[in-house]
Design a protein around this nucleic acid. Structure first.
Length: 557
RNA sequence: UGGGGAAUAGUGUAACGGUAGCACUCCGGACUCUGACUCCGUCAGUCUAGGUUCAAAUCCUAGUUCCCCAGCCA
């Protein structure tokens, strides 16, 4: 184990409960060789941020302990699974930074072995072919408070079981007509132990094994053995599988094979969104979102397109920790993680979302002043770019107030404000239309850079600005817990009607070449991502990843 | 009503019989050519009731609340 540090006793790093279990096992010389984890998705949907937690956990543990990490598809149900999902999941796992090296596996790779083991269990009198229909089986199973009854087929002779199982495999029976069941205990208080189904008949085409099989193993009969075959030491899964652990253990014991240790943790919940595959699918099929990669979705593909980075999601998963308590993480944590990462990475640019025209009266029409602006104020190596300053410019309408409170540091009649990187302007005149709306400001420009003024605002040249589509995203749901609905309503009723606002914004001209897939901070506004799907050459589309923190709105309210 | 889990500031997460710590949020302040970033500070917690002990978040007893399980889904 660890030896005492020579001097200057260091505080031990805080360990989560899984690390503590592993540490203890290591200390007790169990699983000593090398720890080995895996991420076992079913290829029947897209990955979401909850899966990212599991991937980061499993891969992180392997890294931390110098062990290995596998990617294994749990593809035991051909009627729900598709190659398309396999491809997207692999891409997302890779993007998340988890490296399975050459260890990409499929539970379907083990079908032959699983079948042989089933025969072994039949021969040992630990499995039998059952003729009960699904409805009958439900009846025989009993309830939470009432024990089940033995299947009439439970005591079938071994040779008869063997023959029937062979016929099941040979395709002689229709779907659902028979099952192979483990013979455990119909009176067990844990319902998973009441003679669970090991094999069911499904004459279905499997995305990998084709039509080789018409019987498919169940999750319970597959998962632990797959872990075992791969030499997994810690089979980490979510809490709902806690009730399955006795079964997991039973199969490994009955088969006498390497017995990985299953450990369960609480899945991730986030405020203002939904996470279940079913609900996400519903959002897509009912067109509440544009697809699985809609930037409002908590899917990895959605987050990627929103502008989240691998590093930000890793940091987030690290920060939320892991425990057995069902918790809900505030969405603000996710946003905070991207801000932190993007603050360092994203180049800066100026963009005006909601414009107000200013005429700089002391500049000539047609005159252009080249303004040098740093691409990243904290990182000189990022270089400079040029902004054209012209007589007519656009500023954010919010940055001017006629009757401004004392704490308003921006532009007001007669007041001064700094134009980012350019100089200082003074508001001489407010022009209004017949209805009294401010339509234009007339200001004088002072190129002095040294004077101090309290406020700095962003701007673009009216003549030279690039018009571009900017998508302002907000929470998918209008309430923290969208599942919390009154009788007769669903989470759909809690969707945020303003989760997407698409506008035409005015951007500094250098952005015309913005490359799809890059992150940019529009100063004072937020982080934006050049949409990789809808951007076309010279016509970038920007997705707002996250706003900047804004302490002004707090003052205002 | 059976079985399996879980309860620590607003939200997460540590402390493993010996000063309840950390992060985010909130609030206050400093700095600032982004009201950003950064920095500093404040507020705030052991589900309840008993018990063991010099000492309990931790051990014991009883209770409360929440989650999961009755698919030939995973």
């Amino acid at each position: 184990m660890t030896s005492d540090p020579p001097s200057g006793e260091e505080k031990p790093a805080s360990r989560n409960f899984i690390e503590q279990i592993i540490d203890a096992d290591l200390a007790a010389a169990k699983n000593v060789d090398q720890i080995h984890t895996r991420f076992p998705p079913e290829p029947n949907g897209y990955l979401h941020i909850g899966h990212a937690k599991s991937i980061c956990l499993n891969y992180g543990l392997a890294q931390q302990y110098g062990g290995k990490f596998n990617l294994r598809f749990d593809d035991t149900n051909p009627t729900r699974e598709e190659q398309e999902y396999v491809d997207s999941i692999m891409d997302d796992v890779r993007w998340l930074g988890a490296n399975w090296e050459d260890r990409l596996f499929f539970a379907s790779d083990y079908f032959e072995q699983l079948h042989d083991w089933a025969v072994k269990l039949i021969k040992a009198g630990k499995a039998f072919v059952c003729d009960l229909t699904a409805d009958e089986m439900r009846e025989y199973r009993g309830t939470l408070v009432k024990p089940g009854k033995n299947s009439p087929d439970r005591d079938r002779r071994v040779d008869e079981n063997l023959e029937l199982f062979a016929k099941m495999k040979a395709g002689e029976f229709p779907d659902g007509s028979r099952t192979l069941r483990a013979k455990i205990d119909m009176a067990a208080p844990n319902i998973n132990l009441r003679d669970p189904v090991m094999y069911r008949i499904k004459h279905a085409h499997h995305h990998r094994t084709g039509d080789t099989w018409c019987i498919y193993p169940s999750y319970d009969y597959t998962h632990g053995q797959s872990d075992s075959i791969e030499g997994i030491t810690y089979s980490i899964c979510t809490l709902e599988f806690e009730n399955h652990r006795p079964l997991y253990d039973w199969f490994c014991e009955a088969l006498g094979i390497h017995h990985p240790r299953q450990i369960e943790f609480a899945r991730l919940n986030l405020t203002y969104t939904v996470m279940s595959k079913r609900k996400l699918l519903q959002l897509v099929t009912e067109k509440h979102v544009s697809g699985w990669d809609d930037p409002r979705m908590p899917t990895i593909r959605g987050l990627r397109r929103r502008g989240y980075t691998t590093e930000s999601i890793q940091a987030f998963c690290e920060r939320i920790g892991v425990a057995k308590f069902n918790s809900t993480i505030d969405m603000a944590w996710l946003e905070d993680a991207v801000r932190e990462d993007l603050n360092e990475k994203a180049f800066r640019a100026l963009a005006v979302l909601n414009p107000l025209k200013i005429v700089l009266t002391n500049l000539e029409p047609g005159q252009t002043i080249d303004i040098e602006a740093p691409n990243h104020p904290q990182n000189p190596e990022a270089g400079m770019r040029t902004l054209p300053l012209t007589r007519e410019i656009l500023i954010e309408a919010d940055d001017f107030m006629e009757d401004a409170p004392k704490k308003f540091f921006r532009l007001r009649p007669g007041g001064e404000v700094r134009l980012r990187c350019a100089g200082i302007i003074k508001c001489d005149e407010v022009v209004k239309d017949a209805a009294g709306n401010v339509t234009e400001l007339r200001c004088t420009f002072d190129p002095d850079h040294a004077r101090k003024v309290k406020g700095t605002i962003h701007w673009v040249s009216a003549a030279r600005a690039l018009s571009a589509e900017v998508r302002l995203y907000d929470h998918l749901c209008a309430v923290e817990n969208p599942e919390d609905v009154p009788e007769g309503k669903t989470f759909i009723d809690n969707l945020n009607p303003n989760s997407l606002q698409s506008i035409t914004a005015h951007l500094e001209p250098s952005l015309v070449d913005a490359i799809p897939g890059t992150h940019i901070q529009f100063e004072r506004l937020g982080y934006f991502f050049v949409d990789p799907v809808d951007s076309t050459p010279n016509k970038p589309v920007f997705n707002r990843t996250a706003t900047l923190r804004d302490s002004w709105t707090k003052v205002k309210n």
